[in-house]
Amino acid sequence: MAPPRPRSRPTTRAMRARAAASSDRIPPDVLFDVLLRLPARDLCRLRAVSRSWRALASDPLFVAAHAARHGGPLFLAKFRDDKTSVYAVDLSGDVVKRVAAGAGGGPYHRLLCTRLDLGCLATDWNRCSVLDPATGAVHVLPERPAEEHANCVNLSNPYTFFALGRVAATGEHKVLRMFNRLGFHNGGQQIFEVFTINGGTDHARWRGRQGPGLFIDECSGVVVDGVVYFLTSRVYEGAHCGIRPDYIVSFDLGREEWMRDLRGPISSNAGYAKVSLYTRRQLALAELKGSLVLADHYHQPFTMDLWFLSDFRSGLWVKQYHIRIESLNLRSADEYHEYHLKPLLVLDDGRLVLYLAPTGRLFICDPGTSIFIQLDMRRLDSVGVYTGNLLNSEEGERV
């Protein structure tokens, strides 16, 4: 008599089927409580166990309860060792979810530094995609310019800037695109257009808009509450131009028009002699706690002041942070300016998350002690803050 044949190891499908059968015997309230304790990373995988688990983990009540219980910040990141994916990572550097970037993936696509429930990947030569990390949907924006700009833009060699923001009044996400014509300070021009994500047939194209009347520094753009803010261009460097280095222009994505110009805190709080010594090189814009922030980088000594815009109409700014940078061991003023720290987030305990782009590293800084702690994370290519919920994948493709 032949010996009994050894039982084969259960396949993945068999294991899922057995887990699904046992899951149906778990009372719903018990299953709710158990799944509620798991991080989003595990829930995204466990949704494949059974339809009942997927339905529960996608229920709006469960999603809201899970978000309240697991309230830590998440970041969207592209890593230098993976050019085709976008990752949702937590403050510990752990990967919560990996999303294929599709047409938006590539060595030259970078994540815009947004603070939204969507991500935006773009290049300098007119490639832009909007990504929903919850559903994995990717919306590739058209490259063709607005009809009114068809004869103005040379698409064979474009230099573009993109900004993605959300209009609170309508919930729409809009993208601002700027074609930065080479040699614009010698008679060239900066051309602006707007695109609405999922705005319907009437909005499925770029719409041309007027410029602000001043040349802007496209690399300084930051979005706060549906408004895109820019510092003016470095072509105005020097007091003889009459344009202060902290002069700010802004574009309202909701109304799709430029707002009145804004004086920065340096011009508002310092005399002319001191302002004339400033350069745009030491200034940068950011968004923190829902406010526009001007970061002022000094090099004697190495420090960074963060000014928060308290009231747009009155132009009132308040300095909330003064941080010493000595512990980063930057060797010179030139290196300091090259290694600008980008403020990303204020944590609940008041500490700051900052990005040092040339090194691809994130740091947490205690502003009271100016002590920096480097996060244990793979080298970053680009990064933004994610405000959505990765479990909201049953709402359909929003992009």
Rank of each mutant, 00 (worst) to 15 (best):
A270E: 14
D348N: 11
R378A: 00
G226V: 07
D261L: 02
F161S: 14
N126M: 04
R98K: 15
H149V: 01
W53R: 08
V383M: 05
L277F: 01
I197E: 01
R51L: 12
R5T: 14
A333M: 09
L214D: 09
L347M: 13
A168R: 11
S250K: 05
S314Y: 02
V86F: 00
A137S: 12
R207A: 02
L277Q: 15
I248D: 01
I26Y: 13
A88P: 06
G226F: 06
V96T: 08
R398N: 01
N389D: 14
R331H: 12
V140F: 02
P10A: 08
F79L: 02
R13N: 12
T279R: 14
A100H: 11
M377P: 10
S52I: 14
G271N: 15
G171Q: 05
D334K: 02
H109V: 03
G242L: 03
R110Q: 08
E335P: 00
V383Y: 00
L214W: 14
L164H: 04
I243T: 12
L131D: 05
I323T: 09
S85Y: 08
L31G: 07
S50W: 11
P107D: 15
Y236N: 00
N180D: 15
K289G: 11
V249W: 08
G208I: 00
A14T: 14
L347Q: 05
L253C: 05
S314P: 00
C113D: 10
E395Y: 03
A19R: 07
Y336S: 14
H66A: 05
T387C: 10
K78N: 12
D81H: 01
G396V: 06
G165T: 01
A163P: 00
V249A: 10
G238Q: 03
T123D: 04
T114Y: 01
E172A: 10
P343C: 05
C152P: 00
L391K: 14
H299K: 06
T232P: 07
C120I: 06
A55S: 13
A40H: 04
T170R: 08
V175T: 04
L292A: 08
R115C: 13
T11N: 04
M304E: 08
P245E: 12
E395F: 10
R324T: 10
V167D: 08
H297Q: 05
G384M: 10
R144M: 08
T135V: 12
V223N: 06
T135L: 11
S92G: 13
S267K: 01
V130A: 05
A19G: 02
L352Y: 07
T201P: 06
R37M: 04
Q282N: 07
N180H: 13
H66S: 07
S220M: 03
T123S: 08
V96Y: 00
D252L: 03
N126G: 05
L283M: 11
F363L: 15
F372T: 09
D81L: 02
R351H: 08
R127N: 14
A273R: 04
A284Q: 13
S23C: 13
Y229S: 06
L352V: 05
P212C: 13
L288D: 03
G71Q: 07
A20G: 15
N157E: 09
A333R: 15
Q374R: 04
A101P: 12
A2R: 13
P39Y: 03
